[in-house]
Amino acid sequence: MADKVHVTTLLNGESVEFLCAPSQTLLECLRDILGLTGAKNGCNDGNCGACSVLLDGRLANSCLVLGAEADGRTVITIEGLADWAGLHPIQQSFVEEDGLQCGCCTPGMIIAAKALLDREPNPSDGRIREWMAGNLCRCTGYETITRAVRRAAAHLNGEGAEG
């Protein structure tokens, strides 16, 4: 058994230290060591996006990142989005547009949407669908998710949400 690794990371704005096995994924560290169960284990293979987090601001499947790789990096999970004032505008838009049913894919969808809107404030529907192609949903049929991202974009751009 290889020695445990000591990891220091800026997680949702707070400095966090933990010990993990070198082969433990960031997803396992978040869920099993740090108690953050927002990121889901859907496929554990990079195919579904349920485990999406932001690693140094970049969208990543945390099932394909080792916990050890997060050392010295910043990590944002779904738990880091809402604040004392309420839900994040992307979360709010998912509620308003019924962008979820069972909710299993939702944390990943919202993180992926944030990664997109952080770099492209005004994506087309086609671009939203293309960007979110790595995030699978078994319930909604994607239409309301696309709408929720569009609504969130409008919110974040300071436009009154339409409809």
């Binding site: 969208l59 499947n61 992926a112 293309e130 995030n135």
Partner: peptide
Amino acid sequence: IGGSAIRQR
């Protein structure tokens, strides 16, 4: 290659 998340890595 892959989707947007895969391509970041």
